[in-house]
Simulated scan of single mutants.
Amino acid sequence: MPESSNDVWAATVNGKPKIGAVATRTRRTTLRDIDIFSEMTGDFNPLHYDAELAAGSVFGRVIVQGGVTSGILNAVVAEDLPGPGTVFLQVSWRFVQAVGVDEEITGQVEVIGVRDDKPICQLKTRVVNAQGEDCLTGEATVYVAALRPAAEQKRSAVA
Rank of each mutant, 00 (worst) to 15 (best):
M1V: 13
W9T: 01
G15P: 09
G15K: 07
A21F: 08
V22K: 10
V22L: 12
T24I: 14
R25P: 04
T26I: 14
R27N: 12
L31H: 15
R32P: 10
I36M: 15
S38I: 12
G42N: 10
F44S: 10
N45L: 10
N45W: 05
P46R: 15
L47F: 13
H48F: 09
D50K: 08
A51E: 06
A54F: 06
A55V: 06
F59P: 03
V62A: 07
G66E: 13
T69D: 03
S70C: 12
S70A: 15
N74L: 13
V77P: 00
P84G: 03
G85L: 02
G85D: 02
T86M: 05
V87D: 08
V87S: 09
Q90V: 10
F95V: 05
Q97C: 12
A98K: 03
D102R: 08
E103R: 04
T106H: 11
Q108C: 13
V109R: 00
V111D: 02
I112W: 09
D116I: 03
D116A: 08
D117P: 05
P119G: 04
P119S: 05
T125H: 05
N129C: 06
Q131Y: 07
G132F: 02
E133W: 08
D134M: 04
C135K: 01
T137F: 09
E139H: 01
V142S: 00
V144I: 04
A145I: 01
A146R: 01
A146D: 00
L147S: 00
P149V: 06
A150R: 09
R155I: 07
A157Y: 01
